[in-house]
Every structure is written in structure tokens, then in C-alpha cells.
């Protein structure tokens, strides 16, 4: 059975596409699936940094397309998990170095061998987006609870609907801050889902561990204590078809919050 190609996209930049790709990929590999991550952000690659594989890259996707190497040679294996591979983007070229058909070919070849092919999409709706979406049969739209990100996500969903290959798309709400939602300073997850009228695949809370893990080059999923890491593992499980309830992210963590919650219930 051929694996599925999942594109991770958002339209707006800085909402956490690359972080999501790295973490879902690692989580799926932990679950025992064979996963390959494709970075299509040619010229502004970051996925290799998040995985800590920067120093292992010899060949890139551009080398594969221009037939300087075989596809297998360009795949970089993860340090810890042999189930996880990375096909890196070239840093010294730009998006026009690859076209949609070539990327579709690569995805088709890879999905024969791997259970999941995750494509990290660049920001924007230009050539880079068109390339990334070309081979995909599933999509995860990443957004944050902000008007600008939601508007861009809406545009992306519209474009995905018009694509033939993409069978289903689901929404991932990233960087959610339960405190702000409670005080009505941030849109709730329900509101976002309602505005976009789209299936939800997961909610990721804002987590400072993400910053440190990015700098260390180790996905946050490897940190068992991290709330965001747990949320990503749940997302990975939902991708595989498992039915996992949403993580309770607004659980009060300290004593004072618990007292506040107690009184709030009484009132």
C-alpha cells in the first residue's frame, strides 16, 4: 500500500509550519512508521536546523531534480530515529529551481517506500506553494488564533479545494494561549474552527520549550514533559487514524490558579 503525502501549509509566515513538520514527522517515526520530510522552502531552508541535521546534508532536492545524484543519496537519516529521513532544500538557489511536476515525481517515488511523506511548504501562495501542493493527497493547514493568520488560512483552504489531488484538509491551531482566551483577549479555538468551517486535527499550546528545542536542534516531541510535545504526539496519532481526545491545555498549573478556578466555578 502506498503511503500518503501530507503537505503542511499556512499561507502566512511565522505560524509554525516548519516546527509542526519536524515534530509531527518525529512523532510519527516514534510510533513506528517510516517517514520522510521534504523541505520545499528552497533558499530559506530551516527544517534541517530544527532536526539538527544541518551538518549531514550533501545533496539537496535541487541536486535530485537536476540529476546530479540519486534520490536515495539525497535522503539524510535522522540521528536517533532510523525511521525518519529528510530531503533538504538547497540554500543557494530559489523556488524556481524546481517545478510542480518534478516535485510530484519525487513524492510519487517516495510514497512507495515510506508510510508518510510530509511536505513542508514555504509561506505565500506563489511557485513554492504550488510546488509543495502538487504531489499531496492530504493537507494540514496551520494557523494561529489571529485575524491575519486566519484570513491567510482561508485563502489557502480555497486554493486547496480547487486542487484535484488533495482529498482532505484539516486545521491545526498553533500557539494557543488559554489564559488570553479566558480573558477574551484571544480568539477561542472553537471560533477559529467556526470561521474556517474546517475539521480540526489538533490544538498546540504556546510553549517556551519550542524556542529552546529549536536552538538545540531537537524536536520538542522528544521532551516528554512538554505540553506542546504531547499535543504534537496526539496530532500524529490522529493522522494515523487513532481517535484521541483533545488535550486539556488550560489545566491550571499552580496553586493560585487552582484557587481562582475554584472561586470562578462558585460565582
Amino acid at each position: 500500500m502506498a503511503g500518503s503525502v501530507i503537505v503542511i501549509t499556512s499561507g502566512k509566515g511565522g505560524v509554525g509550519k516548519t516546527t509542526t513538520s519536524a515534530n509531527i514527522g518525529t512523532a510519527l517515526a516514534h510510533l513506528g512508521y517510516k517517514v520522510v520530510l521534504i523541505d520545499t522552502d528552497i533558499g530559506l531552508r530551516n527544517l534541517d536546523l530544527l532536526l539538527g541535521l544541518e551538518n549531514r546534508i550533501v545533496y539537496t532536492i535541487v541536486d535530485v531534480v537536476e540529476e546530479r545524484c540519486k534520490l536515495k543519496q539525497a535522503l539524510v537519516k535522522d540521528k536517533k530515529n532510523p525511521n525518519l529521513c529528510l530531503l533538504a532544500a538547497a540554500q543557494t538557489r530559489d523556488k524556481s529551481a524546481v517545478d510542480a511536476d518534478q516535485l510530484k515525481d519525487i513524492c510519487d517515488k517516495l510514497k512507495e517506500e515510506f508510510d508518510y511523506v510530509l511536505v513542508d511548504c514555504p509561506a505565500g501562495i506563489e511557485q513554492g506553494f504550488q510546488n509543495a501542493v502538487a504531489g499531496a493527497n492530504e493537507a494540514i493547514v496551520v494557523t494561529t488564533p489571529e485575524m491575519s493568520a486566519i484570513r491567510d488560512a482561508d485563502r489557502i483552504i480555497g486554493l486547496l479545494e480547487s486542487k484535484e489531488g488533495v482529498e482532505r484538509y484539516r486545521l491545526l491551531v498553533n500557539r494557543v494561549r488559554p489564559k488570553l482566551i479566558k480573558s477574551n483577549d484571544m480568539m477561542g479555538v472553537d471560533d477559529v474552527v467556526e470561521i474556517l468551517s474546517c475539521d480540526l486535527i489538533g490544538v498546540i499550546p504556546e510553549d517556551t520549550n519550542i524556542i529552546t528545542s529549536t536552538n538545540k536542534g531537537e524536536p520538542v516531541v522528544n521532551d516528554e514533559k512538554s505540553l506542546a510535545g504531547m499535543a504534537y504526539i496526539n496530532v500524529a496519532k490522529r493522522i494515523t487514524g487513532e481517535d484521541v481526545p483533545l488535550l486539556d491545555i488550560d489545566e491550571p498549573t499552580n496553586f493560585i490558579d487552582k484557587i481562582k478556578k475554584f472561586f470562578a466555578k462558585k460565582a
Binding site: K70, P82, E113
Partner: peptide, 19 residues
Amino acid sequence: FPEVQVEEKQEFENAEKNS
């Protein structure tokens, strides 16, 4: 690079050799 001329599936397993 070591030329792997066996079956396609084995090439993936031998990817480590290229590291």
C-alpha cells in the same frame, strides 16, 4: 559514492553507507 545496484528497496536500507 558506493553504487548500490541491488533492488530498489534495499537501497533505502543501505542509505546509511552514504553518511
